[in-house]
């Protein structure tokens, strides 16, 4: 469970986040959507303690993120930032193995090795395990980073635009994977998405942000509505049910 109350963020005199309060229940996939500059990434950075909290309070599974030791938080939540610019020449298996750092402090135990092997298999990376990450394509590297994040084995997973660099196949695979770990392992997934249709197809809940505030939050079906989407994104779009799925026609 992620509990955010009264969180504001001011950078260089301009208000980035304005008194955000939001509670996300344990389990399920929540999509964070909104136009550029709405404050989605800033909110995610605050939750993940990558940025110091200025005002308000955030807890993840009951742990206040500003007072809990960082190593302990790393066992509770994992974060993958948008384009972390990892340039080290590590092998894929080594990178994914570092996901176990909060638990083992570097020396992988037999249990850690089993989890790493399983994660590699799950993310279709076994064949690439001994490749250096600087020899991978952008999409493969992104998958390796997501795998490292999952390997951390936390109850809460935060992802900032993980579909960047992924082709249609791997974008769909990743969203189905998020769905699966939420359904089968009861994990709480909070993911920033730009493609509203991925949110419509895979998320349980949608939180829409605009101008540093929460514009709307609720079940996916209650957010994917023409009037609400127009209010958030600033242009009219059509919402149709195609083959039983809510689909937003926003391209034309």
């Amino acid at each position: 469970m992620i509990d955010i109350s009264d969180v504001s963020l001011t950078l260089g005199g301009s208000v980035i986040l304005d008194q955000i309060s939001l509670t996300l229940p344990k389990g399920g996939v929540t999509a964070l959507v909104g136009p550029n500059g709405a404050g989605k990434s800033s909110l995610l950075s605050l939750i993940a303690r990558l940025r110091p909290l200025q005002t308000g309070r955030i807890t993840v599974d009951g742990h206040p993120i500003d007072t809990t030791p960082t190593r302990q938080l790393a066992k509770v939540m994992a974060i993958l930032r948008q384009d972390p610019g990892v340039a080290s020449r590590l092998r894929v298996a080594e990178l994914v193995g570092f996901g176990r750092f909060p638990h083992s402090g570097g020396r992988l135990t037999a249990e850690d090795r089993r989890i790493v092997a399983e994660t590699l298999e799950r993310f279709d990376l076994t064949g690439l395990a001994s490749r250096f990450i600087d020899t991978l394509s952008g999409g493969q590297r992104q998958r390796a980073l997501v795998a490292m994040t999952f390997c951390q084995g936390t109850g809460t997973v935060l992802l900032d635009e993980p579909l960047n660099n992924l082709d249609m196949f791997h974008a769909r695979e990743l969203m189905r994977m998020l769905r699966k770990i939420a359904d089968e392992h009861g994990k709480t997934v909070l993911v920033v998405l730009h493609d509203i249709n991925h949110a419509a197809a895979h998320a349980d809940r949608i939180v829409a942000m605009k101008d540093g505030r929460i514009a709307a939050a609720g079940d996916t079906a209650s957010i994917i509505r023409p009037d609400l989407l127009e209010m958030v994104f600033g242009f009219p779009m059509q919402v149709e049910t195609i083959a039983g799925r809510l689909t937003v026609l926003h391209h034309a």
Partner: peptide, 21 residues
């Protein structure tokens, strides 16, 4: 401290995310 230094080379965000001081 080799493992910590390797994580350091992955950048601040990844480091903090992994619980590195």
């Amino acid at each position: 401290t080799a493992d910590r230094l390797t994580i350091l080379s992955l950048g601040r965000d990844v480091g903090i995310g992994l619980g590195l001081n």
